[in-house]
Design a protein around this nucleic acid. Sequence first.
DNA 1: AACTTTATCAACCGCTCGAAA
DNA 2: GTTTCGAGCGGTTGATAAAGT
Length: 516
Amino acid sequence: MKRAREESDNEMAPNDQIGSPSANEDSSGGSSADGVVVLKKGPWTADEDSILSEYVEKFGEGNWNNVQKTTGLARNGKSCRLRWANHLRPNLKKCPFSPEEEQLVAELHAQIGNKWARMATQLTGRTDNEIKNYWNTRIKRQQRAGLPLYPPNVCARSKENQQSEFNCGDKQPHELLQGNTFNISDITFDNLHHNQVTLPYAYDPQRYIFTNSMNTVNQPTESGSFFPGYSSGMSSGFPSFKELLNEPGKIQQTFGVSNPYYTEPSRYRLDYRDSAFLGSQSHLNGNLPASGHITSPMKPELPSLQDTETDTFSCLENPTAPPTPCEPTDSYFQYPAASESVKSEYVSSQHDGLLDALVHQSLGKVSTKNQLESFKTSPTSSVASPGDMFACSELNNYLENLAEYNDPISPLGFSAASVFNVSTPQISGGSLNEFPPTEVPSGFETTLPADLHFPDLKMGEQDTLSHPGTLRPDALLGSFWRRTESSQGTNEQSPLDDAMAMLPDEDLGDENKTMP
DNA sequence: AACTTTATCAACCGCTCGAAA
DNA sequence: GTTTCGAGCGGTTGATAAAGT
């Protein structure tokens, strides 16, 4: 009996023969002298196409593995299916994308992320592969040009759609999150000097944008995730937040790197209105520079941070756009208590999505496992990005809420400690030299909510901040949260105190230790 | 004209999922 | 309940064309 094997470079015909005219002669046959069917790879020939077309005409689609058996075509079933779906199937469009199609793709991507197959169902005559190629090309082009990924009208439309989805949904995000402004009058980042901020990732306008009037965070469209295309399960094998909570080791792998902290927080002024706060290539318009110096390792594919980006860009186009009643983006800072009905279900899923975002953010900062490992063994870095602090603040919020809601899956103290332990490397030294430095413009400003009470970092804490341990966001934020609570007259020990208490000694300054 | 860079497209690969055995 | 297989999906790669220097 014949057996099929795939042709590989080192065992059969050389690569240049595959798909070449000489190789085409037996392209439909594919049997070698020893009776072994050599499955061809590479470009399809017209003969192969006609054979496959005849087969489908005769037997219909599916059962692709039978193609080789039935027709003798030296292609595996997978290849046949792909060829048929992408090229031979009737009614396929071969022309360039029309503006309408481009618009639709942008809208769909804003809504569902990298679900190419799902998009293809909405675009008659287009294949998932085609859409994917188009989009990836577009991303490159837009990034190179420093343009927003999504057209403004897509942003607006997406926002409208999501609002209507909210209305149809069970919970209103604004029940959970409040506040429209990002003003922290006391905190400035004036001293984010060029070349002093080494960020292990490039500015990604889709990923790291916070704007003042950006008031909505996407309702999860699927899997309870904030970010379509990045479901809670993190299909890339990334652990879910629940897993992270339960397995500190994963957290360490996840967050254990990439949080170098900028070390000159003597004055912080954050202006979220137009800048991409978390990115190193921050610009007042939220775009990449036209020169397109994307110097850090980053994937060209962008996550679909639906509202984050859509709102951002709509805001860029229309700064006076009224805030939406949806979940405010400053939820990254603030998670007001949810209504009782929300706590048990909605909040958890939402937080899963948020964590995914954090996780993804961390991933975006760490390109290789080696970097992870090197950081774990040398958990020091010399600089911090505002984004890192953001990530930590997000984690703080998350963890705090988990405790507040007594989420059974989140043993807060342990989790928080774990997260802090691994996500807040110390400041001194530097182990992320692999990453080329990126710059933050001196005019970089970010404004935080007025109702968000950070400690007055610019005054009186200079000495404290100069201490490596207290420069870390966990220390800063821990101090912040505790201070905030105390300022509210709360005598209870905050969950963050618990978390801080769990931190190893070397991770915290003495002032934060409350170990029994 | 030669060379380099960039864009585009086609195809492959690894993985997941569901159905059937 | 487990294994196997087919189908499908998303990410990535390689080849080639086009544009730029």
